[in-house]
């Protein structure tokens, strides 16, 4: 566990401003390949901004300014040469509340492959089955694949979003508090799937639930007011934090 894995995502002096407000300040970190990395910290500390700078979704905000570098597989993603759709295809995204697209379950999962040009119906059918199975949803929805996705329960919707993200064959899965809208059973279900998936995927999960980070994470980043206070293997951060602020947060003194 202690052997440092090859970093999949790295940032160098990443600083992000919204208008005049600095949200992230001089963040340099490495996210190891095929492990679960948890980004923890009190709300408003820039966790989501950090996550969304990995796939350049922060560019959708108005008045955003980014400096520094984010390297994915060694490539600087802010390089103007980079094709942002290809970058995003590499990374699945799960949001706080599941965002099912206004179409059937089948079309949700097939969406990503279709926009990347796949038209073969048989192949799409296989893909849909494969990834719904991976997301642990196939048995529940196999009889109503062409029904509207919006009629699924919230927990099922989140697994559908996971299947949809997996279907474009990403290498990285980014999750922004993926279980905060879910009931305990669904949360446990999603967590189990993550433990399975980390064999093949690099997973980055933003969470404000420390127990979840303890359960899942191999590697932890602690952000506080836009600064990266501490990062390292999960057991070290939780058992022997080096920084006073990390310790206080873990003990529940600051939040």
């Amino acid at each position: 566990m202690n052997t440092p894995a090859r970093p999949h995502i790295m940032t160098e002096h990443l600083t992000v401003h919204y208008g005049r407000q600095r949200v992230l300040q001089d963040i340099s970190l490495a996210i190891p390949d095929r492990q679960i990395t948890a980004i923890i910290g009190p709300s408003g500390c820039g966790k989501t901004t950090l996550l969304k700078s990995f796939n350049r979704l922060i560019e959708l905000q108005e008045n955003v300014r980014v400096s520094g570098k984010v390297l994915v597989d060694g490539e600087n993603i802010f390089d103007p040469q980079i094709d942002v759709t290809r970058l995003r295809k590499k990374m699945g995204l799960l949001l706080q509340r599941p965002q099912v697209l206004p179409m059937s379950i089948f079309d949700n999962v097939a969406y990503g492959r279709r926009i990347h040009g796949c038209k073969n119906r048989r192949l799409l059918g296989e893909i849909v089955e494969k990834y719904l199975t991976m997301a642990g949803l196939w048995d529940e929805v196999r009889d109503r694949l062409h029904g509207p996705a919006s009629q699924l329960s919230i927990g099922q919707q989140q697994r559908l979003c996971l299947a949809r993200a997996l279907a474009v064959e990403p290498e990285i899965i980014l999750c922004d508090e993926p279980t905060s809208a879910l009931d305990p059973a669904s949360t446990q279900h999603i967590e189990q799937i993550f433990m399975e998936l980390k064999k093949d995927y690099t997973i980055v999960i933003v969470t404000h639930i420390l127990r979840q980070a303890r359960r899942l994470a191999d590697h932890v980043l602690f952000l506080y007011l836009g600064e990266l206070v501490e990062h390292g293997p999960a057991h070290r951060i939780f058992d022997t934090p080096q920084q006073a602020r990390t310790r206080d947060y873990i003990l529940g003194i600051i939040s």
Partner: peptide, 17 residues
């Protein structure tokens, strides 16, 4: 919802798609 656009863009869709 803004998040719905994010969900689609995150799958590698272009803005027009």
């Amino acid at each position: 919802p803004f998040e719905l656009r994010e969900a689609s863009l995150a799958l590698g869709a272009t803005k027009w798609q």
